[in-house]
Design a protein around this nucleic acid. Structure first.
Lengths: 238, 238
DNA sequence: CGCACCTTTGAAAGGTTTCAACTTCTGTGG
DNA sequence: CCACAGAAGTTGAAACCTTTCAAAGGTGCG
């Protein structure tokens, strides 16, 4: 019972986040709510989309976390990006785009097929903003992996996540749910689980963060952000 | 005189590559040729676009190489992606998109302002394909940096470049121009110049490649590609 | 209560970086 | 056409960060 209630709340969060990207008119809201009624559930570890699959319409992640992954021949795995509630999957200008990565659920998730492009101007706008953010996150991920050490990578990613979750109203008192195992984190950060563990301990010892169970608190986000040279993202003119 | 001639050839290559992405009708070709007549030159190291700048229209790189870069506060630099002739810069669905990275010329370049979106359906299609490729290259860059060692990163990037240049007809006999210094390469690969130097020597000793001056030959591209688990990119349905 | 999954720990090996110096190129001016 | 200065490539040794391997704790759920 409590579980069901939470789930509904979370879907609201996802839609709330989408509408933060660009103002949605009544029309767009109606389309989204209709789409969300067709939501379906997947269990943790299940594939939402597989590499090379043709995607006829975008998917919207309503609830739970997912990841875009690439796997090398020998099994090494890289999480290209993390997907949180409100993220849109598979946006493209092409008619029958193929997914450039496999997408798997990191937790139990609820997904729905998003309204197609062109259905609503204000929704298209939100899609465009969402895509622009996604691209910016990819660039951030590249500089993280290319030029930051383990400690910096961890903190930088957590700060990015907290900023993204904030838009969905999923951060309270600098605290938010991070349903990731250290192994998952290591796949996102290009590190080994063992090293992530050690660096996480160091961060806790340095009082940079608190990580209990699946919940995380960044003690001084502004200081941490400043140290990493993070600046607010500006995606669009004006 | 010879120089001028070469430049014209190269611009043709760039446009040829664009039209490989999607068939361009006469209309689109006309628009592109008109755009190319407005081309301007920049010297090596000059900025084409700076971080956060509003881009009213996409740019087309006609000639020369450029790079999208991110710089950390302490000066560490990461090349997010390399741009070669035929690449389109700053595509977005948003009205006044801000550039998510700084773009600098790695060689002397010729750029022109691309026709705006909506001017030609067949050109829009080419833009869409170009953007889809770009995104796929970002994902590839992420897995390179996150999960490959120095040797693999070098070979993988060079293979990607050769595939891209092939589309522009800039590869002959497995050989192509790579006007990059080892330092530039190291910024793309998330390594130090010294280490790139050593790994390059190892690759030469192993007979994987020949690098003389600004020219590179990958001796057995198919074998190298297989070893790295590279598969042909499929961007679109069918 | 027990199995499965996650986190933690230690010690040694390994890949990459750092620093500093030296050599080889390349383009420009005399 | 040679000389020179600056840029790019090369080398060595030591330090450092991260990985590897293996095993021991914890925790949650059926």
């Amino acid at each position: 019972m409590i579980k069901a209630r939470r789930s509904i709340d979370d879907r609201t969060a996802a839609l709330a986040r989408l509408s933060t990207l660009a103002p949605l008119d009544a029309d767009a809201r109606g389309l989204l709510e209709a789409a969300a009624r067709g939501a379906y559930a997947l269990r943790s570890r299940q594939e939402l989309v597989s590499l090379g699959e043709v995607m006829e319409a975008p998917l919207i992640l309503l609830d739970g976390w997912a990841a875009r992954i690439r796997v090398l021949v020998d099994g090494r795995r890289q999480i290209v990006s993390l997907l949180v509630p409100g993220d849109v999957i598979g946006l493209s200008d092409l008619p029958d785009p193929r997914s450039s990565a496999t997408i798997i659920a990191l937790t139990p998730v609820h997904v729905c097929v998003g309204p197609p492009r062109g259905a609503s101007a204000s929704l298209d706008r939100a899609y465009a903003v969402s895509r622009a953010y996604d691209e910016a996150f990819l660039l951030a991920q590249i500089t993280r992996l290319g030029r930051m050490n383990a400690q910096e990578r961890i903190m930088d990613l957590l700060l990015e996540l907290s900023e993204r979750l904030e838009l969905a109203g999923l951060v309270q008192h600098k605290t938010f749910d991070v349903p990731l195992t250290q192994e998952t984190l290591s796949d996102a950060l290009g590190l080994t689980p063992v090293h992530v563990n050690r660096m996480l301990q160091a961060a806790r010892k340095a009082d940079d963060l608190v990580w209990t169970g699946k919940r995380i608190t960044i003690n001084d986000p502004l200081r941490s952000a400043r140290e990493l040279g993070r600046v607010p993202l500006r995606i669009q003119g004006e």
